[in-house]
Amino acid sequence: MKIIVCVKQVPDTKEIRIDPEKGTMIRKGVPSIINPDDRHALEYALSLKDQDSNTEVVVLSMGPKQAKNALIECLCMGADQAILLSDSAFSGADTWATANTLAAAVRKLMPFDLILCGQQAIDGDTAQVGPQLAERLAIPQVTYTRAIQLEDHAIVVERQMEDGYEVVKAALPALITATRKLNTPRYMNIRDIVKIHQMDDPVQIWDLNYLKLDPDQTGLKGSPTRVKRSFSPTPSSEVTFLTGSTEEMVSSLLDALKNLNLIGK
């Protein structure tokens, strides 16, 4: 079985600071991490490999050269092969162009049985790349996965809904997007850390040429999205926090509501 896991390197949003003047994220000095949902996607793939050593796990990422580090970490967790799609032509991609580029790489990796993505990236946050990738490849997709059962040439997936869950069966090859409920990701293994660091090039780099992609289909050029303006929303009303004991807070609340004529005096 061949499994492709799409992994995005993202800034650790726990450490994010916003430039007060430009209103944009300060990326400098912010540590980069594997997108948290993608760890759960990888863990599922690795758990299948634990059960069947013939399983091959390929991790795939599009990003700048430094995204190599995220892929090395995946290899140290037990992935077999890592591919970084990196080319100046890929930069500035929106989800459409990202999915195009990833799809071109997946076609080079055919045949495969399963593609796993995270549900969403903590920086872009759109949750679109997985579904778009499945559409490009014309394969079934199941999003918001919280549990998976593997069957012969099919998967049965529990989809997390707001008020319950759905059970969906899909034929393989298919794409699923993983939620944090799916599993607990493993740590890197010391044995793999040593082994991977002894290799000259543990991560393969694929560029535009190699993918034979039309430059108009990737990067900024291939992105129909135009960001018109980005801003931090200003709070539209004032908030007063009530403090004190429960009794005090309740009586202040009653007073406030009375003063606003929302309840009778």
């Binding site: 890197m188 293994n189 010391i190 044995r191 850390i193």
Partner: peptide, 23 residues
Amino acid sequence: QRYGLMGMNMPVEVGGAGTDDIS
């Protein structure tokens, strides 16, 4: 044991992870 810490600085040839002693 599972993550290769126990025996980490033993050579790979004898079953260790093959780290140096600083690791």
